[in-house]
């Protein structure tokens, strides 16, 4: 097993750990807002580590960049969706100002 493989193994393990943490949060946290928090924060980080882990094995810069692009887009989408879900779940009153 080369050093690169060891690095991948470590990164994937850390990534999987974050996903597990996020999932535990989703299942165990008491309300929607804390659950969202667990999901978006932990899973985005987990995905980042998974991307980091697979990058050396894709055989080129372009595929590696594509995977990074996937990560960035996934974070954007998750962030936006989390905002929308959080706001929809607020009690019916004027939404607080946001930047």
């Amino acid at each position: 097993m080369s050093a690169l493989d060891l690095f991948s193994l470590a990164a994937l393990t850390v990534g999987a750990g974050f996903f597990v943490a996020g999932t535990v949060g989703l299942l165990r946290f008491p309300d929607l807002h804390t659950r969202l928090h667990a999901l978006t924060k932990a899973d985005n980080l987990g995905l980042g580590f998974v991307v980091l882990g697979v990058m050396p094995h894709l055989g080129g810069l372009l595929p590696a960049l594509k995977v990074v692009g996937v990560w960035v887009l996934a974070m954007l989408a998750a962030g936006t969706a989390a905002q929308l879900v959080a706001r929809a779940a607020l009690p019916r009153r004027p939404p607080p100002e946001e930047g």
């Binding site: 887009l73 954007l76 989408a77 962030g79 936006t80 905002q83 929308l84 946001e98």
Partner: peptide, 15 residues
């Protein structure tokens, strides 16, 4: 217009 949805929707189409 300044909300996250609009920002996201402005960002994504080009990609």
């Amino acid at each position: 217009p300044g909300g996250v949805m609009a920002t996201f929707a402005r960002l994504v189409p080009s990609i």
